[in-house]
Design a protein around this nucleic acid. Structure first.
Lengths: 338, 338
DNA sequence: CTGAAAGCGCTTACAG
DNA sequence: CTGAAAGCGCTTACAG
């Protein structure tokens, strides 16, 4: 029934020791033979005793690569993932590989180690993988799901995100409907797909309402509070400062709030502000922050469920899922002063 | 060199199959024999192939049981633990077992599963273990460290905490030195050792300054924001309301702040407030919150390091470590109104 | 309850 | 480069 070394050897037309060598990455195997054995391993779904044990004797294990220091955003995702993990009896493994290590890592070795440790899948948060790196995991039957991928989806991997474009559009339309025409956007890094989508949602709202966009109102940063602070100073020094700011994330919005307070500018009376993420932060600021909420916990749950389904050999409905964002209006937005 | 089944069998004076049965928890072994084998297993530090593999082929694996929804407190601990994990190349496993499941779990089975999955240690956050439960882990060479244990330390397990008594004393002394005499304390559950220590630090400060403690000023809750809100309403309705409140944690302090705002009571002008934990929250409230900071990240790091040292067979300097708390004075405390 | 014997699955050492 | 043979460590089935 279950494939063992001998089964694979028979299918590949070699001896058991040869299969053993391939599995253990020895180099005294001819390339052609190695390829044949690899194919047989994948076809039969061979698992080492370690993996078999891990799958039968214990819960599934999924590795998670997340930047723990990233405040509320990470925390909310993590809460959703752990919530789902507890319900599904799955072990989530963190630590060891950080996003910073990710780029330095040799993905083939890493994937190999995951197999040896009996891991079933991998969840990456805001990371990018090359096609080669992805293949290192796929060839070893390790399913990969990316949350908020930095590069566009559809590169052959499964990803979970939010409707960033729609969220950006909703934020800008809310401000426009209040009467604002001079609206700034504080985005994330230019390479971050989620931030680009928010920017284009914002641009779409402007365009749809016949408002020309101004380059000096569109700034790119790093999703930090410091960026919100610095860019607000910059924006308020313009000859025609904006009457509203749409911050690409709540942390940046916090920086805007701080700089406004320093300059004695009242929010929302003198300046309207919309954040993005909808983290618990939004309820604790004064004024409470109007923000486009991402269903972060749901995204975490969805990612874990997707990984488990992939690991189970199921076919997903779609390789990329976007969960709905929702504009939550609180106290930081008002009509512009006449 | 390394102990295998046969080594253990020889030491225990039995055959290899018998040792195998003991390891696998079969019940067709005489109690006396089982005990002899167990002793030999522990003495030789026997590890299953799974464990040997996990230790040699990959990073150490440590299970972490933490309540992920517990906001900033958990997040800070987690950050410290993951930080240390990345540096030490350790895998931290979360999910699966939640604090709620912990009490329902059969510890012998759980410990067994940990051994089979090659886990080296276990970190528990604010949990309690009975001696029997602890033994289930120790007998299987799984090291256990508890952060902020609910029951008093010294029960044979290793724990990491903060100087809660000193922190409670410092908070109350700060308020007393500002001139306050009517100081309330909003504590955690009566069974929580850390909260009891804070209460007694507070009482020591009162006593040291010749201020009698009043039972109606001392309330017990659940470390929640809701508790801060409700008990502040209660305290302010007294004939002689307190002029200062020492909240047992920052979340509770947030509730105090909220209720004060609802009643139009200004902090710190009309009411002084000190929190406990020193989470990032304290910088985001208005006014910023004076709080006794716990070195939560350091505590997380210390716990992981202790687990690794135990797993490595090292002897610790002390079974319980308390890291220093520090009173951080911000804007929520002032002299009482004359 | 215990252990000699057989077996399982993988790996190693080495002859060709 | 490949595989027959021997070996390793653990487990199972069963006789006593």
């Amino acid at each position: 029934m279950k494939p063992v070394l001998a089964t694979v050897a028979a299918l590949a037309g070699v001896s058991a020791p040869t299969v053993s060598k391939v599995i253990n990455g020895r180099d005294d195997v001819a390339e052609a033979t190695r390829a044949r054995v690899q194919a047989a391993l994948v076809e039969l779904g061979y698992q080492s005793p370690m993996q078999r044990r891990a799958r039968s004797a214990g819960p599934a294990m999924v590795d998670l690569v997340i930047d723990g220091t990233n405040t509320s955003y990470s925390m909310e995702l993590l809460t959703g993932i752990l919530d789902c993990a507890a319900a599904e009896d799955v072990d989530v493994v963190v630590g060891n590989i950080t996003p910073a290590k990710l780029h330095r890592a040799n993905h083939v070795e890493w994937a190999q180690r995951m197999v040896e440790s009996g891991r079933n899948g991998l969840i990456l948060v805001t990371s990018e993988l090359t096609r080669q790196q992805l293949e290192a995991f796929q060839q070893r039957n390790i399913s990969v799901v990316v949350i908020d991928p930095l590069n566009p989806p559809g590169q052959g991997y499964v990803s979970v995100g939010a409707t960033n474009w729609a969220g950006g559009k909703a934020a800008a339309e809310h401000l426009i409907s209040l009467g604002h025409r001079r609206i700034a956007f504080l985005g994330g890094p230019g390479g971050a797909e989620c931030s680009v989508a928010r920017l284009h949602g914002y641009l779409a709202a402007l365009m749809g309402n016949g408002i020309p966009s101004r380059p000096e109102y569109i700034l790119s940063g790093d999703f930090s509070q410091a960026f919100g602070l610095a860019s607000t100073r910059e924006l308020l020094a313009l000859d025609e400062p904006p009457t509203a700011i749409f911050a690409g994330c709540d942390a940046t919005a916090l920086g805007v709030l701080e700089e406004a307070r320093l300059q004695g500018i009242r929010v929302p009376d003198d300046l309207s502000l919309v954040g993005f993420d909808g983290t618990p932060l939004t309820e604790q600021t004064l004024p409470r922050l109007t923000s486009v909420a991402q269903p972060l916990q749901e995204m975490g749950r969805a990612a874990l469920r997707a990984v488990l389904r992939l690991a189970n050999g199921d076919v997903l409905d779609s390789p990329h899922v976007e969960l709905a964002t929702e504009l939550v209006i609180r106290d930081s937005t008002a009509p512009p002063r006449a």
